[in-house]
Amino acid sequence: MGPLLAFSRAVDALNTAVGKLADWAVLLSCAISAGNAIVRYGVSYSSNAWLEVQWYLFGAIVMLGASYTLFRNEHVRVDLVYGNLGERARLWVDVFGFIFFMLPAMLLLAWMTWPFFVDSWVRHEGSPNAGGLLRWPVKLLLPVGFVLLCLQGFSELIKRIALLRGIHPTAEVVVEYHRPEQ
């Protein structure tokens, strides 16, 4: 399992770094949105570019943040049954879920969103609104986000299999499922 766990550590580090970008997107979108309102009111100036950049950043929060959220095991579950299982059973649920639920769906989405981005890129697709932004950067977030999620899915799968085989991974693995850390 050595190389696999090394891979897992690398993915965790990558998504931790990418998650920081998503954090910054929260602060930026908030500052820009409040700034938009104040500037428009104060000097009657605004532009669609500044309106659109808000939801570009929103896209970044979601697509760049989802994989780190998975690393922290904070995607919400219905734990009616899961909550009453022992740790090994929970690990098995996760192994099953990553293989049959999560990875197929996210791989498919990653694969399908790539041409969606490429078309926008080659055509230099812009905004239909006066002064709006080029569309490819926000469309690129989709395949990037889904690929990062797939990588994190593999990482989580590896760590859980290691735990099931009695190997305690040197990588951080959050098997406990509870509220976001304070």
Binding site: H75, R77, V81, Y82, L85, G97, M102
Partner: peptide, 18 residues
């Protein structure tokens, strides 16, 4: 059925759809 298994809701929803 899929949701009750207890895997994260978002992935269960997409899995049942797919």
């Amino acid at each position: 059925l899929f949701l009750l298994i207890g895997f994260p809701v978002t992935f269960s929803l997409s899995a049942v759809g797919l």
